[in-house]
Design a protein around this nucleic acid. Structure first.
Lengths: 328, 328
DNA sequence: CTGAAAGCGCTTACAG
DNA sequence: CTGAAAGCGCTTACAG
């Protein structure tokens, strides 16, 4: 037996397909008695609407999209984010990986033109990112994830990286550190720029070395800093993998952690907790962040005006990798 | 300007919509000259087919699906797997998380009835899994990921866990270990059963404690083993998180690793490499595994008969957590 | 309040 | 080889 369509329901309840559609979607235009009859027939038949057909007639696609342009950021972050999004979403997530931002933009155009998605999440915002303008132009409902500040008329969900950075610096200065350095993530990413700015404001004399989240670049950056003329007594890394690489380089150079060098990682993880010494880290609930983003997009889809939602600020968890500066 | 449809192409090339469709899809039924004209008009107009409309008319949906029934297995594994799948896939991945297997099955029925997907990946196979029979009944193209052996008439991609387990046991026995235990993953999962069987075959007297991949259960299992009447001199864990928890419990109980206890983790990870001592682990390229699964599904979609494809066997990487048994 | 029709953008028999 | 039509399963004006 084929699965039932509105035609079957129309037949068995003695009304037109149009009436069935109105009844099923809770729209005015049919009497209460008709509506009830249609609904009960639909239930009896085990009717499930076809989102494909709906999408073609211009209604809901019953899916939202997330496209990732390589290289993607920190693996674990995205997985938890997507997990959190999914858990909160009553629809499917259309996921696609593309090579660059141009392909990403092209995909948004297609998806929207075809009604394949009802909205999208924008991740990994760049400095001067073209995507916000595109979704605005298209009228494609969207939520920017992780971008502080306003993004045209697009909703966003963000965390206060500046405040988090300040809390890290305060922690270190209270331990007597004066020469603090930062090993940053990809310079093209907006949040790197924001963290850079916050770091510079808090540590005017601080050195920033740019890297790319990999352990090899994290190690190289650490070596560069520790072998410099004025080696730092504390380094703040933009992710856990680079921080762990930093611990390795320090050991290699005979620099003890935390006696001679304090280390802080931006995102907390099992890795931070389980290595020796355990790393002081900025901790946040990425899965909850994803759930918040999902709710924000659902709100936009429901017609709410786009707002910027602030997530909880990452919290500094002090562990054994930070200690009093021995050089001040 | 609206995006062009086959109607626009038909108009400008002076043929019917049907002919345009045939020409565009490379089907017989139109002359070469007509086909060329249609193709060039389509190119000039920047035509992109609507996969929504295609799906509704019963053709390709231009998407494949992956549904995850909670609780999902090891996080990192799935992320790498999905990353590997995506990289190989020329279409979108429809991803949805559901509460249980019944919902998962229901989703397959809907997706297939609506032509929302062209095929699906089946992951986390259970002992007596109902899903294989469902996709067979539906005729929904599918690939079983990670399930050794035949699964009805459904294609599969798998790795030889039994051989991998044997290599672990051989490594340990060659180091003089006789009392070897296993801390296993969820008993309901098929690959747990397979590893159990391989372990029992290799270590007839070996104890298996069942756990669930979490650090807390991994720690509890380790405690149970080490405080027992005949504590093992080596433990093989079903994932990295439990193995690391085991290291912690050993330290807590004053059992030194590897002098008094050797530890092996099933899946290698940064965590295994970076903790102290670094863990001996079974390593594999999960991303490549995902790519292989993607190719297998594409082959099935292209009409190939379903086959079982063996992935490379996980390789044992010996590190400092395993050593000669001091008690034999 | 309700029905009959047109349309979304394709594909696929069915005639010529 | 080609065209005109019907149909996929919905939604949405448009008449009554």
């Amino acid at each position: 037996m084929k699965r039932p369509t509105i035609k079957d329901i129309a037949l068995r309840s003695g009304v037109s397909k149009g009436a069935v559609s109105l009844a099923l979607n809770g729209r005015p235009g049919v009497s209460d008695s008709t509506r009830e009859r249609v609904l009960s027939v639909a239930a009896a038949l085990g009717y499930r609407p076809s989102s494909t057909a709906r999408a073609l007639s211009g209604a809901r696609a019953d899916a939202v999209g997330l496209v990732l342009a390589r290289p993607l950021g920190a693996e674990a972050f995205f997985f938890r984010l997507i997990g959190g999004i999914q858990a909160e979403l009553p629809m499917a997530l259309l996921l696609q990986v593309v090579g660059d931002l141009d392909e990403e933009v092209e995909l948004y155009r297609r998806w929207w033109a075809e009604h394949r998605v009802d909205g999208v999440f924008l991740v990994d915002l760049r400095v001067d990112d073209p995507r916000v303008a595109v979704v605005e132009e298209l009228g494609l409902p969207a939520v920017v994830i992780g971008g502080a500040g306003h993004h045209g008329n697009v909703a966003s969900v963000w965390a206060d990286d500046a405040k988090a950075m300040t809390s890290v610096v305060e922690h270190l200065t209270s331990l007597g550190h004066r020469r603090i350095a930062r090993v940053a993530g990809l310079p093209s990413l907006l949040h790197t720029a924001r963290r850079d700015a916050a770091f510079r404001a808090a540590v005017p004399s601080g050195v920033i070395v740019s890297a790319d989240y990999t352990d090899s670049r994290g190690a190289a950056a650490t070596r560069e800093l520790l072998l410099g003329a004025e080696p730092p007594t504390a380094i703040v890394y933009d992710n856990d993998v680079m921080a762990v690489a930093g611990v390795g380089v320090a050991a290699e150079l005979g620099v003890t952690v935390p006696a001679e060098l304090s280390i802080v990682a931006w995102d907390d993880s099992p890795l931070c907790r389980l290595i020796h010494p355990p790393l002081t880290a900025l901790s946040r609930d990425t899965s909850a962040f994803g759930a918040r983003a999902a709710r924000a997009l659902l709100a936009v889809l429901a017609g709410a005006s786009p707002i910027d939602t602030e997530d909880t600020t990452p919290v500094l968890v002090a562990r054994a990798s930070t200690g009093h500066s021995s050089r001040s």
